[in-house]
Amino acid sequence: MLDQQVRLIVDRGVRAAPRLTPAGERILAAASTLFYEQGIRTVGVDAIAAAADVTKKTLYDRFGSKDRLIAAYLEQRDRTWHLFLDEQLAERKPATPEEVILTLFVALTDWLAGSRNGCGFINASVELAAPDHPAMPVIVGQKRWLRSEFEAQARAAGLEDPGELADRLLLLHEGALVSYRVAAMTNAPEVATRAATALLANWPRLSK
């Protein structure tokens, strides 16, 4: 159980995992692998159904449409990400809000280990141009949550202008993800962590 001081502060609003039939679980698992490794738009329902060993009718019966399956894939990825962060916090045991913030950066190194494709949410946002796509609230919500968490931790630490600090931290965090994927900058998480450490060390505190 995490100490009250070092917990994540902002309600994550992550949707509970849906109850799926075994076929539905296979479909979602197959789609998650194919979407992340090959891209959302390049993977068709035929390929997903074949990988899951189901018919296309079963896929549509379980998820309604490819768009809803995309949303389900990102919702599952969001749940996995938050569980991973909980594990990182439990393992690293940050003692201050600033250390919680840095743990969110350090976690990127392990999260991205063995993958060349970076952030599934950023990748999806590039492929899904329509703002009314069912997956867009999941993508936007995931990034807004992270910014809100940075701001809440900065406020808990007694740092000045926590909103401005949160904006800068988010740019560092997301910039690391993009640089890792697009520029093949494999040390991007480490560079971002050092930049965040320096930023926090020099950020003014509220006078007591």
Rank of each mutant, 00 (worst) to 15 (best):
N187A: 09
E164W: 09
Q153S: 02
R205F: 15
A183L: 07
W203G: 00
R144T: 12
R155E: 15
T186Y: 00
R147D: 02
L169F: 02
A198R: 15
E127A: 15
M136T: 10
E164L: 15
A156M: 05
E174Q: 06
L170E: 14
S179N: 08
S179R: 07
L199D: 05
R144W: 05
N202T: 06
A129T: 14
V126W: 03
S125G: 02
R168M: 13
A157F: 14
E149P: 07
R181H: 01
L171D: 11
M136H: 13
L177A: 08
R181T: 00
A192V: 10
V126R: 06
G175E: 01
R205E: 05
G158L: 07
W145H: 14
A184K: 13
V138M: 10
P162M: 08
R144K: 04
K143T: 04
T193P: 04
A130V: 05
G175Q: 02
D161L: 12
P204D: 01
D132H: 11
L199T: 10
F150V: 02
V182F: 01
D132A: 14
N202M: 07
A135I: 04
A130P: 03
E190I: 09
P134M: 12
L199W: 03
R144A: 11
T186I: 01
R205Y: 07
I139N: 03
R194N: 00
A183W: 09
E164R: 15
A183K: 06
S148R: 13
A156D: 10
L206N: 14
L128V: 04
R181Q: 03
L199Y: 14
A198S: 13
